[in-house]
Structure formats: C-alpha cells, structure tokens
Write a protein that binds this DNA or RNA. Structure first.
Lengths: 155, 155
DNA sequence: ATAATAAAAGTCAATATTAGTCAAAGATAA
DNA sequence: TTATCTTTGACTAATATTGACTTTTATTAT
C-alpha cells in the first residue's frame, strides 16, 4: 500500500463523510486537533485534494463561529472543454482574445446571449479601467477563468 | 451545524419576523437580553446584515420609548432601481456589500441565479486577486456598475 | 417653563475567535 | 541526487464580541 501520510488520512476522513452527505462543515482547529496536526495543514489538504477540478467547492468564514465547508458538486460534460480553454488563457488575455473565447462559448451553447454580454462587460477595458495593460490582461484572465471554473459544475 | 455565532442567529430571528411582516420594531435591550448579548451587538448585527444593499431600511429613536425599526424595501418598486444601486455602490464596494447587492437583484428578479453567480465569481476577492484593497474594491465597483448599466439597455 | 434625571440607542476601540498565507524545514519518491 | 510532496509555525486577515463612553429623547421635579 501507498504511504499513509496524515494528509491522505485526513482526506479520506473528509471524503468518508462526503460519501453520505452532500457537504461537510468543519471547524479547522477541531480537525487539526483530531489528527494532531497544525491547523494550516487542513488548508494544505483542502488545497491539494479538494479542488474544483476534483469536483469540490470550498467556502469558509473566519471569526467567532467560523467554519470550513466542503461541498461535492456534479461536474458537467463540458468540464474538459473548459479545462482546455483555461489552459489556453493562462494568466493573461487581451480583450480581443477574450471576445473570441466568449463568442465560442456562446456558439457552443455553454453561455446564452445575456451571460456572454455580462462577461464581456465585466472584462471590458473601460470597465476595468486600469492604466497598466499587463494588469488589465491578467485581471481579465482571472475573471474569465473564475467564471469558466464556475461553469464546470451545476449549482 | 451551521451558524454557530450569535450574530447569525439574531439575524435569522429578525428575518423570520420580516418574512411575515412588512417591518419589525424592536427594543434593543430586549433583543439583547433574549439572546444574552450586550446591546451594542444588536447594532453590529444591523450594521453588517441589514444594510440598504441588503434591501433594508433602518430607523430608530432614542430615549424613553425608544426603538429600532427595520423595514424590508423592494428596490424594484423604485422606478430607477439601477440608479439607486449605482449611487449606493459609488466608486468602491466590499465583497460583502457586493454580495448583498447581487442578492437583492436576484430576489427582485433582475438577475437569475446563474447570472448572479457569474457576477459574484467575477468580483470575488480571490478572482480579482490584487493586494491593494482599495484597488480591489474600486474594480469591483466598476464591474458591477458596468453590468448594471448594461442591464439598463436590455430591459 | 426649566432643570435635573432617567431611559433609551449610537459609537468606537479593545479583545477574542476563528481561518488564510507563505516560506522554511523535513520526508519521500524518481 | 534531485524534484516533489508534506509538515510546521510565524504572521496576517476577517469576523464577532464586549464594554466604556456619548448622544438623544422622554419624564419628573422645582
């Protein structure tokens, strides 16, 4: 058998809960105590094993009564198409290229007209209105990738 | 499992009343006693969860017979909702307030669920991922206002 | 009527309670 | 050996809670 490091064990523990439930909600320090690790290791486990690529959504809240919530979501058939697009976009994209990406998603019926327009407005040069072109292009990339990642599953 | 903190519980309590009534009028100290918190916590709950972005109006009176009154307002009743919201947003908005604004638009059927999600993803702190908070908040404001202005044409 | 007192709510900053980030050190696998 | 993965902990950020002090309004006493 493979190395059973603690991260793997915590991963299995959380997934065993998710086998029966739609989501799991934890207090970070409690899980850390349970497995005798530092709290930030929980973040490590989540970051490496509960990604959207794997079909997990994570949300959290700090402060009193804070929590981390992991939800299992259904990945759609389009998921790998979106992966490819995300790869192509990388960490920067021009307005022109963004238009092409959104256009093709519209033609493939991944987005309807209104949604496509929303994205184009959100990533428009004049909307972002930053002087630095590199920053503009990287912001545009992050916004579109964020949206593509969101489109991978149904909510 | 969820909402372990008292502020969330008080929020739900007040909203459950507002589900049946147009407004709720409380005596601050009574609610504070009811939930065993200091009176100023009620102000905290109101300030963080019953903002105009959330679609609530709050008025109060001090002195004998004083009260706090929370009213749910329907932004759609206002002929120029979008103008109002744009005013409220100004040139900067936090993620929390943006969530409230988008939620309101969804509740008022200006946006459907998918569109609301798209906007929230596009303006999420981690999506924008700029270290300068002021820049983050102003970008968020421009994106949301850009979209609101776009919606004006559509409808 | 005016002044003093009481009875509310408001403000703000200190403290508490969470989770997040990041980089260094350690362990494991190729 | 070298590259990758894991573990750790110091530091940061977000959110919630508390209480001392202030302000506003109503009531009571003179």
């Amino acid at each position: 058998m493979q190395s059973q490091n603690i991260s793997d064990i915590i991963e299995k523990y959380l997934k065993s809960i998710l086998a029966d439930a739609e989501h799991v909600e934890i207090r970070r320090s409690e899980i850390a105590d349970l497995f005798n690790v530092v709290p930030s290791q929980i973040n490590y486990v989540i970051k490496t094993r509960f990604t959207i690529q794997n079909g997990y959504l994570v949300e959290s809240k700090r402060g009193g009564g804070g929590y981390i919530r992991i939800e299992k979501v259904n990945l759609l058939d389009d998921a790998d198409v979106l992966d490819t697009l995300i790869q192509v976009i990388g960490d920067s994209i021009t307005q022109r290229d963004a238009y092409a990406v959104v256009q093709s998603l519209y033609e493939d019926d991944v987005l309807n007209r209104r949604e496509a327009q929303l994205i184009l407005v959100a990533t428009d040069r004049n909307t972002l209105a930053v002087d630095d072109h590199d920053l503009e292009n990287s912001l545009r990339a992050r916004i579109i990738i964020g949206i593509l990642n969101h489109l991978r599953y149904e909510s």
